[in-house]
């Protein structure tokens, strides 16, 4: 057993685990944050996407011990208690989710995409940016719409702040 310490959603958290424990299982089972999901075994579906040190990563393909010392944001920590991040709000407004299982990974991916390329996203760049996330319910139509709307909203409020 190895001790893993992470800063998760702003709080320092520690736990013991086997070295073979995947980060996603550590987050779900040791930290009790079950919003991050596992949908495949081959690093493809993206249901497990979180942010590690500011970048989107697939927590199903990283060992918890590899991540030790890093700063992590999960879907639970994206917005304040009871609030929605603009991307979450846009997913609700545009019906960008159905069963909800891929949703946390989709939202974390969208936030990362807007962080990197925000302000001038197009349907094409959004679809390309979702290459690592699979949704079986929505046909992506409303996810794309939601991300474009969130991008415009975030860019707008940035401009307003300047």
């Amino acid at each position: 057993m190895t001790k893993v310490t992470l800063t998760v959603n702003g709080r320092t958290m520690s736990g013991e685990c086997e070295d073979r424990t995947l980060l996603v299982h550590f987050i779900r089972e040791k930290l009790g944050l079950t919003g991050t999901h596992v949908g495949c075994d081959t690093t493809q579906c993206g249901a497990c996407v979180i942010h590690m040190d500011g970048h989107s990563v697939k927590s199903c393909s990283i060992l918890a011990v590899q991540a030790s010392g890093s700063t992590i944001t999960t879907i639970e920590g994206l917005a304040g208690q009871g609030e929605l991040h603009p991307v979450q709000a846009a997913f609700k407004e545009h019906h960008g989710l159905q069963c909800g299982f891929c949703t946390p990974g989709m939202v974390m991916t969208a936030v990362d995409l807007i962080n990197r390329e925000g302000g001038h996203l197009t349907e094409e760049t959004v679809r390309a940016g979702l290459e690592g996330n699979i949704c079986r319910c929505t046909g992506y139509h409303n996810i794309v719409k939601a991300i474009l709307a969130a991008d415009a909203e975030i860019a707008g409020s940035r401009q307003a702040a300047e």
């Binding site: 944050l33 079950t34 919003g35 596992v38 879907i75 979450q88 609700k92 949703t103 946390p104």
Partner: peptide, 21 residues
């Protein structure tokens, strides 16, 4: 009408079978 169930899914509070302990 936007969905009543969305908030829990969007904030990681959905409760699926594998989440049960």
């Amino acid at each position: 009408v936007t969905r009543k169930e969305d908030k829990r899914f969007l904030t990681g509070k959905g409760r699926y079978t594998d989440d049960m302990t």
